[in-house]
Design a protein around this nucleic acid. Structure first.
Ligand code: FES
Ligand code: FES
Lengths: 161, 161
DNA sequence: CTTAATAAGGATATTTAATATCCTTAAGGA
DNA sequence: TCCTTAAGGATATTAAATATCCTTATTAAG
Protein backbone atom coordinates (compact mmCIF):
# COMPACT_ATOMS: atom_id res chain seq x y z
CA UNK A 1 0.00 0.00 0.00
CA UNK A 2 1.54 3.25 -1.05
CA UNK A 3 0.40 6.79 -1.70
CA UNK A 4 1.00 8.18 -5.17
CA UNK A 5 4.08 10.23 -5.84
CA UNK A 6 1.69 13.05 -6.74
CA UNK A 7 0.91 13.48 -3.05
CA UNK A 8 4.48 14.57 -2.38
CA UNK A 9 4.36 16.82 -5.42
CA UNK A 10 1.04 18.42 -4.45
CA UNK A 11 2.14 19.08 -0.89
CA UNK A 12 5.36 20.74 -2.03
CA UNK A 13 3.54 22.81 -4.63
CA UNK A 14 1.03 24.05 -2.07
CA UNK A 15 3.87 24.87 0.27
CA UNK A 16 5.42 27.05 -2.41
CA UNK A 17 2.12 28.68 -3.33
CA UNK A 18 1.59 29.48 0.35
CA UNK A 19 4.72 31.63 0.26
CA UNK A 20 3.63 33.59 -2.79
CA UNK A 21 2.66 37.29 -2.43
CA UNK A 22 -1.04 38.02 -2.89
CA UNK A 23 -2.20 38.23 -6.48
CA UNK A 24 0.71 36.31 -8.00
CA UNK A 25 0.29 33.08 -9.95
CA UNK A 26 2.80 30.29 -10.47
CA UNK A 27 2.64 28.16 -13.60
CA UNK A 28 2.79 24.38 -13.85
CA UNK A 29 5.98 24.76 -15.84
CA UNK A 30 7.75 26.61 -13.03
CA UNK A 31 6.46 24.27 -10.33
CA UNK A 32 7.57 21.26 -12.37
CA UNK A 33 11.03 22.72 -12.91
CA UNK A 34 11.40 23.61 -9.23
CA UNK A 35 10.62 20.06 -8.17
CA UNK A 36 12.13 18.18 -11.07
CA UNK A 37 8.97 16.34 -12.07
CA UNK A 38 7.19 15.91 -15.43
CA UNK A 39 5.10 18.96 -16.18
CA UNK A 40 2.21 17.19 -17.90
CA UNK A 41 1.73 14.71 -15.10
CA UNK A 42 2.09 17.28 -12.34
CA UNK A 43 -0.64 19.15 -14.15
CA UNK A 44 -3.06 16.34 -13.26
CA UNK A 45 -2.32 16.76 -9.58
CA UNK A 46 -2.81 20.51 -9.81
CA UNK A 47 -6.11 19.98 -11.57
CA UNK A 48 -7.14 17.84 -8.62
CA UNK A 49 -6.25 20.63 -6.23
CA UNK A 50 -8.22 23.04 -8.38
CA UNK A 51 -11.31 20.82 -8.45
CA UNK A 52 -11.10 20.47 -4.70
CA UNK A 53 -11.20 24.25 -4.40
CA UNK A 54 -7.78 24.51 -2.78
CA UNK A 55 -6.19 26.50 -5.58
CA UNK A 56 -7.50 28.72 -8.33
CA UNK A 57 -6.03 29.22 -11.75
CA UNK A 58 -5.89 31.73 -14.52
CA UNK A 59 -4.93 31.39 -18.16
CA UNK A 60 -2.60 33.16 -20.48
CA UNK A 61 0.91 34.52 -20.03
CA UNK A 62 1.72 35.07 -16.34
CA UNK A 63 -1.09 32.65 -15.62
CA UNK A 64 -0.91 29.65 -13.33
CA UNK A 65 -2.05 28.77 -9.84
CA UNK A 66 -2.46 30.44 -6.48
CA UNK A 67 -4.07 29.32 -3.24
CA UNK A 68 -7.83 29.77 -3.06
CA UNK A 69 -7.75 30.06 0.75
CA UNK A 70 -5.32 31.25 3.38
CA UNK A 71 -2.54 28.83 4.37
CA UNK A 72 -4.20 28.48 7.76
CA UNK A 73 -7.36 27.19 6.11
CA UNK A 74 -5.71 24.44 4.07
CA UNK A 75 -4.69 21.23 5.82
CA UNK A 76 -2.54 18.30 4.76
CA UNK A 77 -5.72 16.24 4.67
CA UNK A 78 -7.31 18.59 2.14
CA UNK A 79 -4.35 18.19 -0.17
CA UNK A 80 -3.94 14.44 0.28
CA UNK A 81 -7.63 13.84 -0.32
CA UNK A 82 -7.63 16.08 -3.39
CA UNK A 83 -5.02 13.77 -4.94
CA UNK A 84 -5.83 10.38 -3.43
CA UNK A 85 -9.56 10.67 -2.93
CA UNK A 86 -11.56 10.32 0.24
CA UNK A 87 -12.19 6.60 0.22
CA UNK A 88 -10.75 4.60 3.09
CA UNK A 89 -7.54 2.66 2.58
CA UNK A 90 -9.34 -0.45 3.81
CA UNK A 91 -11.98 -1.93 1.57
CA UNK A 92 -14.29 -4.52 3.12
CA UNK A 93 -15.51 -7.08 0.59
CA UNK A 94 -17.75 -8.60 3.24
CA UNK A 95 -16.11 -11.98 3.05
CA UNK A 96 -17.99 -12.76 6.27
CA UNK A 97 -21.08 -13.37 4.14
CA UNK A 98 -19.36 -16.24 2.36
CA UNK A 99 -19.63 -18.26 5.57
CA UNK A 100 -21.41 -21.46 4.45
CA UNK A 101 -23.30 -21.58 7.76
CA UNK A 102 -25.29 -18.48 6.82
CA UNK A 103 -28.42 -18.63 4.75
CA UNK A 104 -27.82 -17.12 1.36
CA UNK A 105 -28.61 -13.41 1.30
CA UNK A 106 -28.16 -12.89 5.05
CA UNK A 107 -27.04 -9.39 5.94
CA UNK A 108 -25.98 -8.22 9.39
CA UNK A 109 -27.17 -5.05 11.07
CA UNK A 110 -23.89 -3.23 11.42
CA UNK A 111 -20.48 -3.22 9.84
CA UNK A 112 -18.05 -6.07 10.44
CA UNK A 113 -16.10 -5.52 13.66
CA UNK A 114 -12.86 -6.07 11.78
CA UNK A 115 -13.69 -3.45 9.18
CA UNK A 116 -14.69 -1.06 11.94
CA UNK A 117 -11.24 -1.26 13.52
CA UNK A 118 -9.57 -0.70 10.18
CA UNK A 119 -11.79 2.28 9.45
CA UNK A 120 -11.11 3.75 12.88
CA UNK A 121 -7.40 3.53 12.16
CA UNK A 122 -7.93 5.21 8.81
CA UNK A 123 -9.79 7.96 10.64
CA UNK A 124 -6.89 8.39 13.06
CA UNK A 125 -4.61 8.87 10.07
CA UNK A 126 -6.92 11.49 8.60
CA UNK A 127 -7.32 13.25 11.94
CA UNK A 128 -3.57 13.63 12.16
CA UNK A 129 -3.35 15.03 8.64
CA UNK A 130 -6.20 17.42 9.36
CA UNK A 131 -4.36 18.78 12.38
CA UNK A 132 -1.55 20.33 10.31
CA UNK A 133 -2.15 23.33 8.07
CA UNK A 134 0.04 24.93 5.45
CA UNK A 135 0.58 27.76 7.92
CA UNK A 136 1.96 25.26 10.45
CA UNK A 137 4.19 23.79 7.77
CA UNK A 138 5.52 27.22 6.88
CA UNK A 139 6.47 27.84 10.50
CA UNK A 140 8.32 24.54 10.68
CA UNK A 141 10.15 25.20 7.43
CA UNK A 142 11.33 28.63 8.59
CA UNK A 143 12.66 26.99 11.74
CA UNK A 144 14.40 24.03 10.09
CA UNK A 145 15.52 25.12 6.64
CA UNK A 146 18.57 27.43 6.43
CA UNK A 147 17.43 31.00 5.79
CA UNK A 148 19.69 31.50 2.78
CA UNK A 149 18.08 28.55 1.01
CA UNK A 150 14.60 29.84 1.72
CA UNK A 151 15.58 33.30 0.50
CA UNK A 152 17.26 32.12 -2.67
CA UNK A 153 14.33 29.88 -3.51
CA UNK A 154 11.83 32.63 -2.78
CA UNK A 155 13.73 34.91 -5.13
CA UNK A 156 13.86 32.27 -7.83
CA UNK A 157 10.11 31.76 -7.53
CA UNK A 158 9.25 35.47 -7.52
CA UNK A 159 11.21 36.04 -10.73
CA UNK A 160 8.95 33.48 -12.37
CA UNK A 161 5.57 34.34 -10.83
CA UNK B 1 -4.07 3.98 -2.12
CA UNK B 2 -5.63 0.76 -1.00
CA UNK B 3 -4.67 -2.14 1.22
CA UNK B 4 -4.62 -5.57 -0.41
CA UNK B 5 -7.64 -7.79 -0.14
CA UNK B 6 -5.37 -10.25 1.66
CA UNK B 7 -5.45 -7.97 4.70
CA UNK B 8 -9.17 -8.62 5.15
CA UNK B 9 -8.57 -12.34 4.60
CA UNK B 10 -5.70 -12.55 7.08
CA UNK B 11 -7.61 -10.69 9.78
CA UNK B 12 -10.62 -12.96 9.42
CA UNK B 13 -8.45 -16.08 9.40
CA UNK B 14 -6.69 -15.01 12.58
CA UNK B 15 -10.04 -14.27 14.17
CA UNK B 16 -11.14 -17.83 13.44
CA UNK B 17 -7.86 -19.34 14.62
CA UNK B 18 -8.22 -17.37 17.85
CA UNK B 19 -11.40 -19.28 18.59
CA UNK B 20 -9.85 -22.69 18.02
CA UNK B 21 -9.30 -25.04 21.00
CA UNK B 22 -5.66 -25.58 21.98
CA UNK B 23 -3.78 -28.08 19.86
CA UNK B 24 -6.09 -27.96 16.85
CA UNK B 25 -5.00 -26.90 13.39
CA UNK B 26 -7.08 -25.43 10.58
CA UNK B 27 -6.05 -25.98 6.97
CA UNK B 28 -5.81 -23.41 4.18
CA UNK B 29 -8.51 -25.34 2.36
CA UNK B 30 -11.01 -24.93 5.19
CA UNK B 31 -10.15 -21.27 5.77
CA UNK B 32 -10.53 -20.58 2.05
CA UNK B 33 -13.90 -22.31 1.92
CA UNK B 34 -15.15 -20.49 5.02
CA UNK B 35 -14.30 -17.12 3.53
CA UNK B 36 -15.00 -17.86 -0.11
CA UNK B 37 -11.55 -16.93 -1.38
CA UNK B 38 -9.06 -18.73 -3.64
CA UNK B 39 -7.10 -21.28 -1.64
CA UNK B 40 -3.76 -20.90 -3.43
CA UNK B 41 -3.72 -17.15 -3.06
CA UNK B 42 -4.90 -17.16 0.53
CA UNK B 43 -1.99 -19.50 1.14
CA UNK B 44 0.41 -16.66 0.38
CA UNK B 45 -1.15 -14.52 3.08
CA UNK B 46 -0.95 -17.36 5.60
CA UNK B 47 2.69 -17.87 4.72
CA UNK B 48 3.22 -14.23 5.53
CA UNK B 49 1.59 -14.70 8.93
CA UNK B 50 3.79 -17.72 9.50
CA UNK B 51 6.98 -15.89 8.60
CA UNK B 52 5.99 -13.10 10.96
CA UNK B 53 5.70 -15.64 13.75
CA UNK B 54 2.00 -15.02 14.32
CA UNK B 55 0.90 -18.53 13.38
CA UNK B 56 2.60 -21.91 13.24
CA UNK B 57 1.89 -24.72 10.86
CA UNK B 58 2.15 -28.46 10.61
CA UNK B 59 2.04 -30.77 7.60
CA UNK B 60 0.12 -33.84 6.70
CA UNK B 61 -3.51 -34.83 7.17
CA UNK B 62 -5.12 -32.83 9.97
CA UNK B 63 -2.36 -30.30 9.43
CA UNK B 64 -2.79 -26.58 8.95
CA UNK B 65 -2.37 -23.46 11.03
CA UNK B 66 -2.86 -22.34 14.61
CA UNK B 67 -1.91 -19.17 16.47
CA UNK B 68 1.67 -19.04 17.73
CA UNK B 69 0.72 -16.65 20.56
CA UNK B 70 -2.31 -15.96 22.68
CA UNK B 71 -5.05 -13.78 21.12
CA UNK B 72 -4.14 -11.08 23.61
CA UNK B 73 -0.59 -10.98 22.26
CA UNK B 74 -1.52 -10.50 18.62
CA UNK B 75 -2.62 -7.08 17.41
CA UNK B 76 -4.23 -5.85 14.23
CA UNK B 77 -0.95 -4.14 13.45
CA UNK B 78 0.95 -7.43 13.62
CA UNK B 79 -1.38 -8.96 11.08
CA UNK B 80 -1.56 -5.98 8.76
CA UNK B 81 2.22 -5.62 8.74
CA UNK B 82 2.68 -9.32 8.10
CA UNK B 83 0.70 -8.94 4.89
CA UNK B 84 1.45 -5.37 3.82
CA UNK B 85 4.93 -4.92 5.16
CA UNK B 86 6.22 -2.33 7.59
CA UNK B 87 7.16 0.41 5.18
CA UNK B 88 5.30 3.69 5.52
CA UNK B 89 2.46 4.47 3.15
CA UNK B 90 4.21 7.72 2.30
CA UNK B 91 7.40 7.50 0.29
CA UNK B 92 9.52 10.64 0.10
CA UNK B 93 11.50 10.87 -3.11
CA UNK B 94 13.25 13.99 -1.80
CA UNK B 95 12.00 16.17 -4.60
CA UNK B 96 13.19 19.09 -2.47
CA UNK B 97 16.71 18.35 -3.69
CA UNK B 98 15.69 19.05 -7.27
CA UNK B 99 15.42 22.74 -6.34
CA UNK B 100 17.69 24.44 -8.92
CA UNK B 101 18.84 26.95 -6.27
CA UNK B 102 20.69 24.23 -4.37
CA UNK B 103 24.20 23.19 -5.22
CA UNK B 104 24.21 19.72 -6.71
CA UNK B 105 24.64 17.06 -4.06
CA UNK B 106 23.37 19.20 -1.19
CA UNK B 107 21.75 17.16 1.58
CA UNK B 108 19.87 18.58 4.54
CA UNK B 109 20.37 17.54 8.15
CA UNK B 110 16.95 16.14 8.91
CA UNK B 111 13.97 14.80 7.05
CA UNK B 112 11.75 17.07 4.99
CA UNK B 113 9.10 18.70 7.21
CA UNK B 114 6.40 17.53 4.81
CA UNK B 115 7.54 13.93 4.96
CA UNK B 116 7.69 14.16 8.72
CA UNK B 117 4.01 15.09 8.95
CA UNK B 118 3.07 12.26 6.61
CA UNK B 119 5.12 9.80 8.63
CA UNK B 120 3.58 11.00 11.88
CA UNK B 121 0.15 10.34 10.41
CA UNK B 122 1.25 6.89 9.32
CA UNK B 123 2.41 6.31 12.88
CA UNK B 124 -0.97 7.38 14.24
CA UNK B 125 -2.58 4.78 11.96
CA UNK B 126 -0.24 2.10 13.23
CA UNK B 127 -0.73 3.13 16.85
CA UNK B 128 -4.46 2.67 16.44
CA UNK B 129 -4.02 -0.76 14.88
CA UNK B 130 -1.62 -1.75 17.63
CA UNK B 131 -4.19 -0.86 20.27
CA UNK B 132 -6.58 -3.65 19.27
CA UNK B 133 -5.75 -7.31 19.88
CA UNK B 134 -7.45 -10.45 18.66
CA UNK B 135 -8.76 -10.86 22.20
CA UNK B 136 -10.43 -7.45 21.96
CA UNK B 137 -11.89 -8.41 18.60
CA UNK B 138 -13.29 -11.62 20.04
CA UNK B 139 -15.05 -9.69 22.78
CA UNK B 140 -16.62 -7.34 20.26
CA UNK B 141 -17.74 -10.19 18.04
CA UNK B 142 -19.43 -11.98 20.93
CA UNK B 143 -21.27 -8.77 21.72
CA UNK B 144 -22.34 -7.92 18.19
CA UNK B 145 -22.78 -11.17 16.24
CA UNK B 146 -25.88 -13.26 17.02
CA UNK B 147 -24.95 -16.19 19.25
CA UNK B 148 -26.51 -18.81 16.99
CA UNK B 149 -24.31 -17.72 14.09
CA UNK B 150 -21.19 -17.86 16.22
CA UNK B 151 -22.16 -21.29 17.52
CA UNK B 152 -23.01 -22.76 14.14
CA UNK B 153 -19.78 -21.44 12.66
CA UNK B 154 -17.74 -22.70 15.58
CA UNK B 155 -19.26 -26.16 15.09
CA UNK B 156 -18.59 -26.08 11.37
CA UNK B 157 -14.96 -25.16 12.04
CA UNK B 158 -14.41 -27.75 14.76
CA UNK B 159 -15.67 -30.54 12.50
CA UNK B 160 -12.91 -29.61 10.10
CA UNK B 161 -10.03 -28.90 12.49
C1' DC C 1 5.72 -49.15 5.03
C1' DT C 2 2.65 -46.89 1.99
C1' DT C 3 -0.36 -43.40 0.86
C1' DA C 4 -2.83 -39.25 1.02
C1' DA C 5 -2.92 -34.63 2.81
C1' DT C 6 -0.67 -30.72 3.74
C1' DA C 7 2.56 -26.21 3.99
C1' DA C 8 6.24 -23.91 1.51
C1' DG C 9 7.59 -21.69 -2.13
C1' DG C 10 9.05 -20.90 -7.10
C1' DA C 11 7.30 -19.75 -11.68
C1' DT C 12 4.17 -17.63 -14.43
C1' DA C 13 -0.10 -15.64 -16.13
C1' DT C 14 -3.78 -12.15 -15.75
C1' DT C 15 -5.80 -8.02 -14.34
C1' DT C 16 -5.74 -3.51 -12.52
C1' DA C 17 -3.70 0.72 -11.04
C1' DA C 18 0.03 4.10 -11.27
C1' DT C 19 2.80 6.71 -14.08
C1' DA C 20 3.63 9.32 -18.05
C1' DT C 21 3.07 11.46 -22.63
C1' DC C 22 0.53 13.54 -26.31
C1' DC C 23 -2.84 16.37 -28.31
C1' DT C 24 -6.87 19.51 -28.69
C1' DT C 25 -9.58 23.30 -26.94
C1' DA C 26 -10.65 27.60 -24.85
C1' DA C 27 -9.24 31.58 -22.36
C1' DG C 28 -6.21 35.50 -21.19
C1' DG C 29 -2.52 38.88 -21.91
C1' DA C 30 0.93 41.35 -24.79
C1' DT D 1 -3.15 38.70 -33.89
C1' DC D 2 -0.02 35.81 -31.50
C1' DC D 3 1.81 33.48 -27.66
C1' DT D 4 1.08 31.36 -23.21
C1' DT D 5 -1.48 28.96 -20.22
C1' DA D 6 -5.03 25.55 -17.70
C1' DA D 7 -8.33 21.89 -18.65
C1' DG D 8 -9.08 17.67 -19.97
C1' DG D 9 -9.52 13.60 -23.18
C1' DA D 10 -6.92 9.82 -25.24
C1' DT D 11 -3.46 6.70 -25.12
C1' DA D 12 0.87 4.43 -24.00
C1' DT D 13 4.03 2.48 -20.61
C1' DT D 14 5.33 0.51 -16.33
C1' DA D 15 4.64 -1.55 -11.96
C1' DA D 16 1.81 -3.84 -8.63
C1' DA D 17 -1.99 -6.67 -7.19
C1' DT D 18 -4.32 -10.75 -7.98
C1' DA D 19 -4.48 -15.42 -9.20
C1' DT D 20 -3.13 -20.06 -10.83
C1' DC D 21 -0.05 -23.85 -11.43
C1' DC D 22 3.43 -26.96 -10.17
C1' DT D 23 7.17 -29.18 -7.42
C1' DT D 24 9.10 -30.56 -3.04
C1' DA D 25 9.44 -32.03 1.58
C1' DT D 26 7.00 -33.26 5.66
C1' DT D 27 3.60 -35.42 8.46
C1' DA D 28 -0.13 -38.30 10.09
C1' DA D 29 -3.27 -41.99 9.09
C1' DG D 30 -4.15 -46.48 7.48
S1 FES E 1 -16.25 -8.87 6.29
FE1 FES E 1 -14.95 -7.30 5.60
S2 FES E 1 -13.71 -6.95 7.31
FE2 FES E 1 -15.06 -8.48 8.03
S1 FES F 1 11.16 16.09 -0.19
FE1 FES F 1 9.89 14.39 0.12
S2 FES F 1 8.28 15.18 1.28
FE2 FES F 1 9.57 16.88 1.06
Amino acid sequence: MQLRNQVEWALHCCSVLAGLPAGRYLSTKVLAELHGVPKEYLSKALQGLSQAGLVESTLGPSGGYRLAKTPGQITFLDIVEAVEGKTSSFVCDNIRYNNPCLRKGYRADGACAIAQVMWDADQAWRDKLRSVSLADLGKTLRKTVPADILDKTQGWVLERS
